[in-house]
Amino acid sequence: MEKRPASFYFLAAFFALFVLFLYGPTVTIGILSFQGPQGGLTFPMNGVSTYWFADLFREQAVGDIWGAFGRSLMLGLMVMVTTVAVSVMAGLAFRKRFRGSGLLFYGAITSLVIPSILVSLGVGLIFNQLGLKVHWATSGFGSQLTWTLPFGLLIMFAVFNRFDKSFEEAARDQGATAWQTFRYVVLPIIAPSLIGVALFGFTLSYDEFARTLLTAGSYNTLPLEVFGMTTNVTTPVIYALGTLTTLFSFLIIAVFLLTVWITNKRRARFGSDAGKGV
């Protein structure tokens, strides 16, 4: 193997520092969440305990975080399923030109670049004027979709740009209907990417703050609850909560990545099962 140039070591060090910069703070609050009961928000550690984690289960200490967690989980799943379904359909639509496709594409880009607070404000105003109550499952759900769908759509563009059309042609030549071609040929081929879209849909929803701020109504989602805590909680309990939510996010990411990995492994072992039917 070729000898590494000096620049490699410099860049590797830079990369290591970048990773430290990314993860350092998270690790720090992870450590600090084990503060003793008398411990404060910074070092030194005043003993080691799981006191603050236990505090999370005392209702009066932190408000309704478990209710908020349940709502965020539910909302995340709703957004995830909708994002996958709508993105795939739109991705298929954009493979061919149709009248209005340019407009819709720019709509999606606008949705991506528009300041989140505008969506929050606008949706809030509409519900207000129509006399409807804002609720996380209606106005909150719709507002979050304006953030997740453009990501889903962009991923679908990337997928279909690399899609080999001859698979579909072969299926059609064999007499498959349009639906059969999609169900037994296209869908299995794009499946791993759909897991990626699902990951974006869930995590972006689960962590979304600005778009739900004025659209969640009287029941907070978890990020809103956490933000509320930052203004009135001055104990390490907030670190404990942060550590738990981050661990939960890591778990979700691991599940998704593992699923992709297993799917690819299976595919490598058995060859593509596209076109073989069920």
Binding site: M89, A90, A93, F94, V119, G122, I126, T146
Partner: peptide, 24 residues
């Protein structure tokens, strides 16, 4: 066909992006 497939996306963007901008 294109319109049918793009309809859900268009509906979401219409209700939760275009309408809010108009409202603002």
């Amino acid at each position: 066909i294109g319109w049918l497939q793009a309809a859900p996306l268009a509906a979401v963007l219409g209700c939760f992006l275009a309408a809010p901008i108009v409202m603002i």
